[in-house]
Design a protein around this nucleic acid. Structure first.
Length: 481
RNA sequence: GCGGAAGUAGCUCAACUGGUAGAGCGAUAGCCUUCCAAGCUAUAGGUUGCGGGUUCGAUCCUCGUCUUCCGCUCCA
């Protein structure tokens, strides 16, 4: 069963490459692991998903405004957010069992054993020494600490360890012309902090009143230890995040509201209900008091697509501490100042892209009238986000049909993405559009010259209908809005 | 990072397992003018992942390396 799923996944990856959706990055140089580029149709689809999200957040909610914060941020941002401490875990491997451990977990686990044996003082001293060495990032001494205490692997029982290596999940770079340690910057590992540090700017400049939200889309970067599964887990990826600021005490109501609203958004793009599910977090992150994932059934199983977290006032409070600036909001209704609580909705644009692609992909077997069978590959992408909305085909290259087609093209292309094609048999042209998910094809034939009607061919049903050429634009606009 | 498998045209594969690489599909141009792929003609496209070795000669044997896939491992 899993083999079949894997094959299906490989097929989708191949299809994505062959039809210009997703290419491996730097492919002529053998590629760059866990980085991908979006091709002609992929970049259209990705932009369409992003725009659809953006519109649903900002245009359709009076109380949500947008932000486009920079990828570079002041280094203290990441100390305040906890990323510097929580995302640079020293790791060590046991050479015999091949098991990998976080160094702090390994030593703390050993300390707990000591404590249960009644050697509490010894355990405390060990942890204390570990913390000092961790702070100094003295990995050689940490390894020595493990070896002198004969801390073994639980699986192999041996003390045969590799050197300690740091797995920093943030990418760093330098700013300025002088190479100096104080000029080290990180590429943001999430977009959310750009929203938090701009909380007061946005609230004041756009005259927002709690409850209100700030939406942002943008690139984020994480140095994943193992990055695989196509565009599901990439080192450079794009997030679509919205932080919703609420009065403390009301956050769980808002959490429920956003859960439902986000699920409805997924439905509106045609994702089948059985392909998605909520997964509540049992073990909550240090900053959250409620959290749920929307999981999508990718070809390799149910995986996180979107996260909805009640983040309390953790982030704003931390930024208040580190910056010394008040992150307070005065609420006239209750005549009080407070640090707002935050409900976060965070969805991976690339993951949504993959969810759309994998739920849209279908290979159909068709029975023809003469009894022979036929097949087609079709992407059932919602017209709202499909890369191309309308394909225009003159039935033949002669008799003035191309001229009529080009006229229609000129009329429609300012409103939405169109594709004109006069080469090959009509059926072949339909199939090519099916493969990239174009919802509508219109064909201009000889009858068009007489009564100005065209044939509309629908992608999913493959049915055809005859409508006035003057209605084509209106029909497509009706389907994509 | 460890273990296993695989890299030949854009794709799917072939080349009597040592004798200097072919086909189908696809693409492009033209013919045909036909409302659901696979009609005709022509053209383009490969230092066989890369680098060494053995050999008169390597897609094939050998070593290294890179990449991808599968499994394990890690994952706020």
């Amino acid at each position: 069963m899993s083999t079949k799923q894997d094959n299906n996944f490989q097929t989708i990856i191949s299809h994505a490459k062959e039809y210009g959706f997703v290419f491996p990055s730097s492919e002529i140089y053998d590629g760059l692991s866990a980085v991908y580029d979006y091709g002609p149709y992929g970049s259209e689809l990705k932009k369409n998903i992003r725009n659809y999200w953006w519109k649903s957040m900002t245009q359709l909610h009076d109380n949500i405004v947008g932000l486009d914060a920079a990828i570079f941020m002041h280094p203290t941002t990441w100390k305040a957010s906890g990323h510097v401490d929580n995302f640079s875990d020293p790791m060590i491997d046991n050479k015999d069992s091949k098991k990998r451990y976080r160094v702090d977990h390994l030593i703390e686990g050993f300390a707990e054993k000591l404590e249960s044996k009644g050697k509490k003082e010894e355990a405390d001293a060990l942890v204390e020494e570990m913390n000092q060495l961790l702070a100094k990032e003295d990995f050689a001494a940490l390894k020595t600490l493990i070896e002198t205490n004969k801390i073994g692997c639980e699986v192999s029982g041996t003390c045969n360890w590799t050197d300690i290596r740091q797995f920093n999940l943030m990418f760093s770079t330098e700013i300025g012309s002088v190479a100096d340690a104080t000029n080290t910057l990180y590429l943001r590992p999430e977009t959310a902090q750009g929203i938090f540090v701009n909380f007061l700017n946005v609230q004041k400049s756009a005259r927002m009143k709690v409850p209100f939200g700030i939406a942002q889309t943008g690139k984020a970067f994480r140095n994943e230890i193992v990055a695989r599964q196509f565009i599901f887990r990439m080192r450079e990826f794009e997030q679509m995040e919205m932080q919703f600021f609420v009065r403390p005490g009301t956050e769980l109501d808002w959490f429920e509201k956003w859960k439902e609203e986000r699920l409805a958004w997924h439905r509106s793009l045609g994702i089948a209900p059985e392909k998605e599910r909520f997964l509540p977090h049992i073990k909550l992150a240090h900053y959250a008091n409620a959290a749920v994932d929307i999981e999508f059934e990718f070809p390799f199983g149910f995986k996180e697509l979107e996260g909805i977290h009640s983040r309390t006032d953790y982030d704003l409070r931390r930024h208040q501490e580190f910056s010394g600036k008040k992150m307070m909001y005065f609420d006239p209704e209750i005549n009080q100042s407070y640090i707002p609580y935050v409900i976060e909705t965070s969805i991976g644009l690339d993951r949504m892209f993959l969810a759309i692609l994998s739920s849209a992909y279908e290979e159909q077997e068709l029975k023809k009238e003469d009894g022979t069978s036929d097949s087609r590959t079709v992407l059932h992408i919602s017209p709202k986000i499909s890369p191309v909305k309308l394909a225009i085909f003159p039935l033949t290259k002669k008799d003035g049909l191309p001229e009529i087609g080009k006229e229609l093209m000129e009329d429609c292309k300012t409103a939405f993405r169109c594709y004109y094609e006069e080469k090959d048999a009509i059926g072949k042209r339909y199939r090519r559009q099916d493969a990239i998910g174009t919802p509508f094809c219109v064909t201009i034939d000889h009858q068009t010259k007489e009564d100005n009607t065209v044939t509309v061919r629908h992608r999913d049903s493959m049915t055809q209908e005859r409508i006035p050429m003057s209605e084509v634009k209106k029909m497509v606009l009706g389907a994509i809005l």
